[in-house]
Write a protein that binds this DNA or RNA. Structure first.
Lengths: 210, 210, 210, 210
DNA sequence: TATGAATGAGGATTCATTCAT
DNA sequence: AATGAATGAATCCTCATTCAT
């Protein structure tokens, strides 16, 4: 559990959870605006509605806040993704609809994903490994979807690469919005990405999905 | 010209160019290592081999250094990309070989591209627009390659999206190296990405390229 | 009574005594390790086995803890010294054996004496006077021993100075242990100091004592 | 050289010496007043007449200031002591006069000695060893004086102990001034200490010296 | 032009103390 | 009486930037 990696001087575990979720909420909105480095711990405390001293009862360093934020975002993405994934009845149609859910999720969380993207590098080695491992798991989820739902055999290598492609294309919608969201609506974007993917796999893509 | 956007108190234009290229060189290697925020101006000056005072004769703020760096990287990428692009004899084969050149270029400059990726956000609005505009031009180059070399008509929208995909897949090789470069060699990676692209466009991809 | 100088919000006097002795015990071991300034009130509370809130029920400021500690050490030293002092049968031999007891006591309590030595300065003027007064009493005890046990008349001034010398030589064994305890065993040290003292007073010191 | 143990970002060596001596001067007067821990770096900077930033150009941590202070005091004491020591014509009379110089020196520098006494413990292990080594050297000087000037053979052990006694008696004049300086003038104090020392060594002490 | 000493606003973190439960 | 969460003033230290030489 990520929470356990951060030491607190508070004993009440529930309170820790509550306060930390406040911290994450406050910090996310600040990190969005100004990035991790330009945000001060005082601002974070203020945004959370408590004093600087209280902030430091729940974390040990500023980097801990970043770790909490990054970990929380990962959690959310994974939880929401898991919700949408159903491998019981694999078919092209369910495949497409899962991909759509994925793209919509990435659209919905683009701000958070942007943070993930730009600030993970500021974590210390150890936390970074932890976070990257989590990302690997998420790519793994997409990979499994691909392997399970597609009719023809696909090599594990190809599946992994396509999962990475999809993952990045999902993120790309957010971090390249300055170029993409001027050209496409989300639906257009999704439709095209999915079409290229399926055609790339030799699956005829008529006008299904959506 | 990007250089003109940064004021210097030095008159000699040639000297400015020379010193600034020293600055870029020194800064790039530091930014790679520790990122923009964790690099101090003193370190930059030292790395460049001159004093902090001299550094400030050629720039006005630390952000100027970042701008110079980012701009220089863009320049290099573009120059080296342009070298490889030849639209005189469009064909699938030249298309493939251009893409390969592109991937190799991104492999070669992955450190620099990473900087581009992670630090552009630290630029002030104005510089950022300038830089993003440059990136648009580069995507435009890929777009033109796609439109020109591929036999069948392709919609401008599709071309643009594919250009973005390619562009990001090139960068992805570097910034997701922790996952990709453990799974694939560069050649494997390129081969696969190109294959998926062509198949996605309905072009049979046998064993050409490379 | 020193205890009365410190205000508590607790009514039960016995409880106050009990808790304060816990405080002293915990604090001494921490002050030994890290000194007064580097020890936090939280650490003290923890070491004592109760909460920070409880700690503050029995003292008003961190300095109170230091005062309690210093006072308690003084008390111990005095009590244990008094035990050993017997002026009923004055003689050179009892003199020597009392001095030996004194040196052994200082050896035994060197950690505490060190605290006394290094931290008294951190007390506020008023507490400091109180503490110094206590020290004066202890030097007075040595002084009386000297005056009573030595055969020849000795001027009060000389007696006072010698008492101070002895007192500091006792402490010195602890706070200069890095140099003294590498050169001498306690017995050697005592034997020599006592010999010089007696000879300085013109009393032949053969091989008595111990 | 102690100065070399502290890193500075300033290049001009002479300036470093000058500024550091300012730092020492300012810090000594503050440490006298409030002790090391209660003195802030800002106060030190202000006392020295420069900004906090400038202070930190010449030191790296607050502890460095303490080290500079302690080292400088040691240096002064040693230099001034060395001046007075002349082992060319050893005799009881020169011995006495050297001891008197020593006591006068300790009287003159009692404030500084007090700092030495109370704050050395706040140094980190490494600096502390360095400082204690220096103190050993000073005790060694007194030891040599004893061995050289006294007529009868004296065991090295005894010489070492007496040197320590003298050293501490010198310091004691300052750090126990609240008790000693109320009872004795400096001359009385010296005269007595020297007398006891000589008699302790079996040397008849009439009314020589001074 | 080049240098590098000086500046001080700003930032992360600590910790004695309080007070509601 | 006991608890421990909350507070925020205080403190150390950094670093971008300036300017006299």
């Amino acid at each position: 559990m990520a929470q356990d990696r951060i030491v607190s001087s508070i004993k009440d575990q529930e309170l820790i959870m509550k306060r930390r979720s406040q911290i994450v909420q406050g910090a996310v909105s600040l990190f969005r605006e100004k990035g991790f480095h330009r945000t001060t711990t005082r601002e974070i405390a203020k945004e959370c509605g408590f004093s600087i001293g209280t902030l430091y009862e729940y974390i040990r360093t500023k980097e801990d806040v970043l770790f909490l934020v990054v970990d929380s975002i990962h959690h959310q993405v994974r939880d929401r993704l898991e919700e949408k994934i159903d491998l019981k009845n694999p078919s092209i149609d369910t495949f497409i609809s899962m991909l759509e859910s994925f793209f919509r999720l990435m659209d919905d969380m683009q701000e958070e994903v942007l943070i993930l993207y730009q600030e993970v590098k500021s974590l210390k080695r150890e936390s970074k490994s932890y976070v990257l491992e989590k990302e690997r798991l998420m790519v793994g989820m997409l990979e499994r979807v691909i392997v399970t739902c597609l009719p023809d055999e696909i090599s594990p290598q190809d599946a992994r690469l396509l999962a990475n492609n999809l993952f990045v294309q999902g993120q790309m919608w957010g971090f390249r919005r300055w170029i993409l969201q001027k050209q496409f609506t989300l639906d257009e974007y999704m439709e095209r990405q999915i079409r290229f993917l399926l055609q790339g796999l030799g699956i005829s893509y008529t006008d299904r999905g959506k």
